[in-house]
Nucleic acid binder design. Structure first.
Length: 881
RNA sequence: AGGACCAUAGCUCAGUUGGUUAGAGCGCUACCUUGACAUGGUAGAGGUCCCCAGUUCGAAUCUGGGUGGUCCUACCA
């Protein structure tokens, strides 16, 4: 069989992905097997694959492929999120480029454009996931805004309303002036930023004094309705109750006293703008102050400001400062650093705004969700996120769920009447709402036209939090949900622990009475080598698809996983992908080597003996590997698992095992060893498959002819068997000896194929009785003669392996000085070693208190060390002769 | 301001309930084109386990304090 010289990922990957899909390996239906379900964190429907997705989905694919190989009914449900703010913003921008303003469109017209956009771009990211090898059940692809998911959202909204857990409230909210919608607290990100603190004076009527306040928002002065000082502040006590004058607008406002004011900050006097600051609002309520909203929803100054109307808040701020300066009411300005809240989606500065919105009362939802995590019903990996989770859950605040957008599920609330008389009817449909309205009012003549449906949609996360239930159509149909739910593990970034993870847990208990998943695996942030976040602005985010092109999907999967323990940030470096593609090449070349061998029925006895041992040795090693890897999977130590496989394949399999059994040039290998080797390679393929699915499938098929349906992806994961410790030990000793010989060759410039002689003292390493070991050493160390007894040449180099001595006789004479130096260095090491052990053992308290086995171990260490010193000194003395 | 987590080789990280004069991968250095692979091989250098104190026969590991970092929450005129 002719095998290409180079591994060609591109061709291999598309071939096998199509094959798997065609065979239906990705799809899952309930059956008698144990279910293993994962729901994907749905990427934004208009998004493109970035490094975060690559990490996240590689992890999920590894877990799901491993489960499949373990014989479980693996089901990975893919889908996308409608991401109302982000998508609506994109559609608005697209329309603007076409010269269409959103404000000129009706809701229906806009939604038509949005759906078109979604049809066109909505599948891109899912196509890209295929390139990565993701083995999702594509037939189950869901969308948070499709019919099933939307119906669930409405059902849940109505259900919560009827339970009294959803209400409407007038509050200060986080307003995004670009998206022109309210946001939840979790969608606002705070960062320290430099701003200017302006000191402004207000004249106080009936006195010749002024009050100076410090503010970062001079433009909101136009909406001031009071000045507050601390009641115990002696500086201002006599001014409380007097009237101050707002600059420019010349409005008369009271000077009030309130304990909220911090006497230490600024001047100790605080301007109160109830419309534009949450604390000012509270103070306003306490003192019955007027609320003057000087801003429009888009962040420009409203007519109520009287000045700078129509100017953006930033421009208005500058104009205001200028105006104050001209009036002589600006005392000074200074730079001030404080936390500024920005919209997670649009990155604009959040504007506090008073408005009426829908809220979910979180208290009762949070209780079982908190308990589940604290009591270990749901386990977090890594565990440290439990603390963060607990802290948030114990201090949870109500969730603002309405959004002033069109792209999303419309709030199922209908209103009758205006103002004070307004009545609300929450129902799944307009008809039911109408029925309710007729009943409530006793007016059978009411028609649909009398009711107005709420204009808002619900928060995207209000559909996402139902995801583990709705992807299995869990509000309509029992079949799938009963089988797959709870899912096994959720894999997601820790940054959405509150936005998503916590809320899914709440929803799980609220509607299914059960956890949505057993485990949560938190991935870290993907950063660049300098630990900077990947971002478009910095241009440090590599093109995911180009990486796959350059290194192959397997190479990229290797690179992205090889240094990213759960919860830890991933410092992405392309060179890790390169290492992955080199690894593919290594595996590929092992295949080429094996497939290049001639197989014979009969080979020499030496060969068969040696190979028999090599096969048994490697079998033990493989079993050891398997039992270790089970624990690693259970603990989600995936990168460790990959790295140990890497070393197992590269070092143990390629560098040792294959070299051990490699037939001499021009000769053939015996059929038995050959078959065993093919079987080993197959098991290696299966073990590596979850990490690197493509090359393993290709190698699997190159190893031998297969019947249709005999694919690596659906093979059985090997089971750990017994480990022969004695064979591992004797081969390890042989490896040590072989390395010593190589080291000596290297140090003395002796060619790889120049034979050396080894003199064995006594029965060192049991070599007298172990033919296989003798052949092995002779072959790998290129030993001409292996001699027992007889005279040992005085210039032969002694080496210590396991307390036993052998002499390596090189075809050149070693410089006695260099040899002395080498031996002295080794002697020094052991002397130091023995000293520390002796010190320990001569300490009576150690001998008394330490466990017997530890003391015994130390005694053995001492004896071994002393023996080595004896031999080394002997050798040094011999050298002196 | 309160809290969480972290600090081990140049870099990224392992290091079980305290018990190898501290490990891996990458990188670095030297040598080697040999017949699967130079996308390779052989070897080497490189660490006061952040600092100080304590507990202990014994501390990278446990406790306290300090320093530095990351993050969360709340507030911030």
């Amino acid at each position: 069989m002719q095998i290409a010289k180079r591994y060609d990922p591109a061709a291999v990957e598309s071939k096998w992905y199509a094959h798997w899909e065609e065979r239906g390996y990705f799809s899952s239906q309930p059956d008698d097997r144990e279910p293993y379900a994962i729901v994907i964190p749905p990427p934004n429907v208009t998004g493109v694959l970035h490094m975060g997705h690559m990490l996240n989905n590689t992890v999920q694919d590894i877990l799901i492929r491993k489960a499949r190989l373990d014989g479980k009914n693996a089901c990975w449900v893919p889908g996308t999120d409608h991401a109302s703010i982000a998508t609506e913003a994109k559609v608005v921008r697209m329309l603007r480029e076409k010269g269409i303003k959103k404000s000129d469109l009706t809701r229906e017209e806009f939604l038509k454009y949005a759906w078109e956009w979604r049809e066109k771009y909505g599948g891109i990211i899912l196509q890209q996931l295929r390139k990565l090898g993701a083995s999702c059940d594509w037939e189950r692809t869901a969308f948070t805004m499709d019919e099933t998911r939307s119906a669930a959202v409405i059902e849940v909204f109505v259900d919560l309303y009827r339970k009294g857990k959803i209400y409407r409230g007038l509050r200060m909210v986080n307003w995004d002036p670009e998206a022109k919608t309210v946001l939840s607290n979790e969608e606002v990100l705070y960062n320290d930023e430099d701003t200017t603190l302006s000191y402004v004076t207000y004249p106080v009527e009936g006195t010749d004094r002024t009050l100076t306040v410090a503010t970062t928002r001079p433009e909101t002065i136009l909406g001031d309705t009071a000045i507050a000082v601390h009641p115990d502040d002696e500086r201002y006590g006599d001014l409380v109750g007097k009237t101050a004058m707002v600059p420019l607008v010349n409005r008369k406002i009271p000077v009030i006293a309130d304990r909220y004011v911090d006497r230490e900050f600024g001047t100790g006097a605080l301007k109160i703008t109830p419309a534009h600051d949450p604390n000012d609002y509270e103070i306003g309520v306490r003192h019955g102050l007027e609320v003057i909203d000087v801003l429009n929803p888009d962040g420009t100054m409203s007519p109520k400001a009287e000045f700078f109307v129509g100017e953006d808040r930033d421009d208005a701020r500058k104009l205001m400062v200028q105006a104050l300066q001209e009036l002589g009411q600006l005392v000074k300005t200074e730079t001030y650093r404080h936390a500024v809240g920005r919209s997670e989606r649009t990155n604009v500065i959040i504007e506090p705004r008073l408005s009426r919105q829908w809220y979910v009362d979180m208290q009762s939802l949070a209780e079982p969700a908190l308990k589940a995590v604290l009591e270990g019903e749901i386990t977090f990996f890594p565990a440290k996120y439990q603390n963060i989770y607990r802290h948030w859950m114990e201090n949870i605040r109500d969730w603002c769920i309405s959004r002033q957008l069109w792209w999303g599920q419309r709030v199922p609330a209908w209103y009758l009447g205006e103002g004070e008389d307004e009545q609300v009817f929450v129902a799944p449909t307009a008809d039911e709402a109408l029925e309710m309205a007729r009943e409530a009012t006793g007016q059978a003549s009411l028609t649909a036209a009398d009711l107005r449906q709420d204009e808002d949609v619900v928060d995207t996360w209000f559909s996402s939090w139902l995801w583990p239930i709705t992807v299995f159509n869990g509000f309509q149909d029992e079949k799938d949900i009963a089988y797959y739910y709870p899912t096994r593990v959720l894999v997601t970034g820790w940054d959405i622990i509150f936005l998503w993870v916590a809320r899914m847990i709440m929803a799980g208990y609220e509607w299914k009475g059960e956890r949505p998943f057993d485990h949560v695996y938190f991935t870290g942030m993907v950063r660049d080598k300098q630990r900077r976040k990947m971002s478009k602005q910095l241009g440090n985010s590599p093109d995911a698809l180009k990486l796959i092109q350059d290194f192959g999907a397997d190479g990229v999967r290797f690179g992205i996983l090889s240094s990213s323990p759960a919860g830890g940030d991933l410092l992405f470096d392309e060179s890790m992908c390169e290492q992955g593609s080199k690894f593919c090449n290594k595996i590929w070349n092992a295949l080429r080597l094996i497939k290049g061998w001639q197989v014979a029925k009969e080979t020499s006895e030496d060969e068969r003996t040696k190979n028999g041992m090599a096969v048994e040795w490697f079998r033990s090693l493989l079993h050891q590997m398997l039992s270790e890897s089970a624990e690693r999977f259970a603990q989600y130590k995936l990168s460790e698992g990959l790295m140990s496989l890497y070393s197992f394949i590269w070092n143990d399999f390629c560098s040792w095992y294959l070299e051990m059994i490699k037939p001499p040039y021009g000769e053939a290998i015996d059929a038995e060893t050959y078959e065993a080797t093919i079987a080993f390679f197959e098991q290696i393929c299966v073990m590596l498959h979850p990490y690197m699915p493509f090359i393993t499938e290709e190698v699997w098929h190159s190893l031998r002819e297969r019947e249709s349906g005999d694919d690596c992806m659906v093979a059985s994961y090997p089971v750990a068997g017994t480990v022969d410790a004695s064979i591992l030990a004797s081969v390890a000793a042989a490896q040590e000896l072989i390395s010593k010989v190589r080291e000596l060759r290297n140090d003395n410039n002796i060619g790889r194929n120049d034979p050396v002689t080894i003199h064995v003292e006594g029965n060192a390493l049991g070599l007298r009785d172990h033919a296989a070991l003798r052949v092995l050493i002779s072959r790998l160390a290129v030993v001409g003669e292996l001699e027992f007894g007889g005279d040992i040449p005085s210039d032969a180099t002694p080496v210590m392996i396991r307390k036993e001595r052998l002499f390596i006789d090189l075809p050149v004479t070693i410089d006695p000085e260099e040899e002395r130096a080498r031996l002295t260095k080794e002697l020094d090491y052991y002397k130091g070693f023995v000293t520390t052990v002796e010190r320990k053992l001569s300490n009576e308290r150690f001998v008394q208190n330490a466990p017997a086995e530890i003391v015994e171990k130390e005694r053995r260490k001492l004896a071994d060390g002393q023996e080595k010193i004896r031999i080394l000194e002997e050798s040094l003395a011999a050298l002196a002769d």
